[in-house]
């Protein structure tokens, strides 16, 4: 098996499982899938799900049925930065459609697609609980709010710089 948690990730795994009583380790499945997704390149290949099933001593199907139910788990590879733009009512009435169209134009991709350089993925999502700060999107673990075209440009530039700095 090539996919495995490193020591640090394994410590995190153990602390997640320790939050639930003996024998109820399946309860850690959602948090552990988050950890796996963060650890293995932003998505969950079958191999990763099977690995998690083994760690939690449950059947692989128990992992698949959960991974396919929740919208935060990516079952296909995604770009380095995923723009998850809210399109539900409150964001819509605050102009999310213009922002979505603008991101599509700037990145030259449609919702669900990833840029050719593997840098950005655009996803349309439902309400993220930031209605008062609309329009907004989630990028990784943070929210980018009060979006305008200028702000979108700055955010794209910011992540490009970040990628360069990391390389």
């Amino acid at each position: 098996m090539s996919l495995q948690f490193n020591n640090e990730q394994m410590t995190e795994f153990k602390s997640l499982v320790a939050r639930y009583p003996e024998g109820k380790q399946k309860s850690a499945l959602l948090p552990v899938l988050h950890l796996a997704q963060d650890s293995f390149g932003g998505w969950l290949p079958t191999e990763a799900m099977d690995y998690v099933a083994g760690l939690l001593k449950i059947e692989p199907i128990e992992v698949y049925e959960v991974a396919t139910f929740y919208s935060m788990y990516n079952l296909k590879p995604v770009g380095k930065f995923v723009f998850e733009v809210c399109q539900t009512g409150p964001c819509m009435i605050s102009g999310s459609e213009n922002i979505i169209a603008y991101i599509q134009k700037q990145l030259a991709i449609q919702p669900g697609e990833t840029t050719k350089d593997g840098m950005f993925t655009l996803k349309l999502v439902e309400c993220l609980g930031a209605c008062g700060y609309a329009p907004m999107m989630q990028v990784g673990k943070i929210y980018r709010e009060h979006l305008t075209k200028e702000k979108v440009d700055a955010i794209i530039a910011e992540y490009r710089m970040q990628a360069i700095a990391q390389n």
Binding site: R19, Y20, K24, K26, S27, A28, L29, L30, P31, L33, H34, L56, I58, E62, E65, V66, F69, Y70, S71, M72, Y73, V125, E126, C127
Partner: peptide
């Protein structure tokens, strides 16, 4: 007190779906 992160499902705000989810299942 333990923090348990969900994974994107409105239905888990319903208390029995939340409990299912907390048990590591579909909501």
């Amino acid at each position: 007190i333990h923090v348990h992160r969900g994974a994107g499902a409105y239905i888990c705000g319903e208390e029995t779906a939340l409990i299912e989810s907390l048990e590591g299942k579909r909501g």
